Simulated assay, not measured.
Amino acid sequence: MDVTGSEEHKCDELHEVIGRIGDRWTLRVTIALRAAPLRFNQIRRAVSGISQQMLTRTLKTLERDGMVTRTVYPTVPPQVEYALTPLGQSLVAEGLRLGAWAETHLGEIDLNRATYDHGKDNGAG
Score class of each variant (00 low, 15 high):
Val3Leu: 15
Gly5Trp: 05
Ser6Lys: 15
Glu8Gln: 12
Glu8Ile: 09
His9Asp: 13
Glu13Gly: 00
Leu14Pro: 00
Leu14Ala: 06
His15Gly: 00
Glu16Leu: 12
Glu16Ser: 12
Ile18Arg: 08
Gly22Arg: 12
Asp23Arg: 03
Arg24Gly: 00
Trp25Gly: 01
Thr26Gly: 02
Leu27Asp: 07
Val29Phe: 06
Val29Ala: 04
Thr30Ser: 02
Thr30Arg: 01
Thr30Glu: 04
Ile31Trp: 01
Ala32Trp: 03
Arg34Met: 12
Arg34Ser: 15
Arg34Gly: 03
Ala35Met: 11
Ala36Asp: 09
Pro37Trp: 05
Arg39Asp: 12
Phe40Tyr: 10
Asn41Ser: 09
Ile43Ala: 01
Arg44Leu: 12
Arg44Asn: 03
Arg45Lys: 11
Val47Phe: 06
Val47Met: 04
Gly49Ile: 04
Ile50Ala: 01
Ile50Tyr: 03
Ser51Thr: 11
Ser51Asp: 01
Gln52Trp: 04
Gln53Ala: 14
Met54Glu: 13
Met54Leu: 11
Leu55Phe: 05
Thr58Gln: 10
Leu59Ser: 03
Leu62Ala: 02
Leu62Gly: 04
Glu63His: 03
Glu63Ala: 07
Glu63Pro: 00
Arg64Gln: 10
Arg64Asp: 11
Gly66Asp: 01
Gly66Val: 06
Met67Thr: 00
Val68Thr: 02
Val68Ala: 05
Thr69Arg: 01
Thr69Ser: 08
Thr69Glu: 08
Arg70Met: 09
Thr71Met: 08
Thr71Trp: 00
Val72Ile: 14
Tyr73Ser: 12
Pro74Cys: 04
Pro74Arg: 14
Pro74Asp: 15
Thr75Pro: 00
Thr75Glu: 13
Val76Gly: 07
Pro78Arg: 10
Val80Ser: 05
Glu81Ala: 12
Tyr82Gln: 02
Ala83Asn: 03
Ala83Arg: 05
Ala83Gly: 08
Gly88Met: 02
Gly88Arg: 01
Ser90Ala: 07
Leu91Asn: 01
Val92Cys: 04
Ala93Met: 10
Gly95Tyr: 06
Leu96Ser: 08
Leu96Gln: 13
Arg97Tyr: 08
Leu98Val: 12
Gly99Thr: 07
Ala100Arg: 12
Trp101Leu: 15
Trp101Gly: 04
Ala102Pro: 01
Glu103Lys: 14
His105Asp: 09
Leu106Thr: 10
Gly107Pro: 06
Gly107Ala: 11
Gly107Lys: 07
Glu108Ala: 13
Glu108Trp: 02
Ile109Gln: 10
Asp110Trp: 08
Leu111Ile: 08
Arg113Ser: 13
Ala114Thr: 10
Thr115Cys: 01
Tyr116Cys: 06
Tyr116Ala: 05
Tyr116Trp: 11
His118Glu: 09
Lys120Trp: 09
Asn122Arg: 15
Asn122Thr: 10
Gly123Leu: 05
Ala124Asp: 15
Ala124Gln: 13
Ala124Tyr: 15
